[in-house]
Amino acid sequence: MEITRNLRLTGLLLLLAFLFLADIALGSVRIPLRQIFNIVFSIGSENTTWQYIVEKIRIPKTCTAVLAGCGLSVSGLQMQTLFRNPLADPSLLGITAGANLGVAIIMLAGGSITTLYTIKELGISGSWSVIVSACMGAAAIMLLVLTVAGRLKDNVMMLIIGFMIATITLSLISILQYFSAPELIKDYLIWTFGSLGGVNGSQLYILALAVVAGLLLSFLSSKLLDAALLGENYARSMGLSPQRVRAVIVCSTSLLAGSITAFCGPIGFIGIAVPHMARSLFNTSNHRILIPACCLIGAVLMLLCDLIAQLPGSQTVLPINIITALVGAPAVIWIILRRNNLRGY
């Protein structure tokens, strides 16, 4: 078992390295592979345009994909453990919608700092305001869902409530949109399609900082997450305080989902599909193994989605959100079919 696990780990690492390079190599501008290598390993290229494209656009975008893949997967894993629900995920339970609302408030109701574009142009302070509002929005919705979850024992009911909360949040956003100027709405709508390409320079550092902090917090509390698998009463009987688990998970999930949503738009389905893949691939429920596994698989899947989004050989780039939904939604159907009865599975 240990051997197959290591074998799979090595395989995933190799796949990740390959996809990482492939994602840099492929794009609307054709750049020879040798040149790509030279630029990536900082030997330099004679063509400054190519150098610019690779350094300033493709590498940040690929790094963003890896960060988003890791962050969304781990936040999905944490929520599935916390709610003891195989279908819990930041986008399904409205956490992403909460982050969305935070961003919408800044973008649409922001007054003087009007569009996300200008916010991004403002540099670090602007990025921080988007990140903070997105994280706060995510945390607010997460706390709301948690309050309701305490009263419910039924998985399906929980999902319906999460869906309703997401709907209410999206309605609030619609009201904001209704009263906003058309040009603001257009910017906002483009943001909601989701994009990995909008993050560059200092923003990448901010995103990386937030995601790494969230992942670290999650990994350090992997023991708490293990005990939470048995439910609140058992967790308490083993000396674990449920408030502490909730606080940790709310902090790290809103940090992860909030920051990624702020910069890349709402990206769905990665958070729900990847934890299941990690569990079946590594055949464990130990979070010390699952968290790194989710990071690896999430990064691989996200890079793959990004590669597909570029439609290799064409000039068009599809919104990343659409691709993750196309990949993730069948995965959700597969989970439901495999589990048969969701209620007591």
């Binding site: 048995l230 439910g231 009463n233 674990l240 007591g344 599975y345």
Partner: peptide, 24 residues
């Protein structure tokens, strides 16, 4: 404790569930 709460949703193997007893 042994409670009436369902633990079936945890995706745990029997061994790792028993091992959780060493949590404290």
């Amino acid at each position: 404790l042994v409670l009436t709460d369902s633990v079936r949703s945890s995706n745990l193997t029997v061994y790792s569930l028993v091992a959780l007893g060493r949590y404290p």
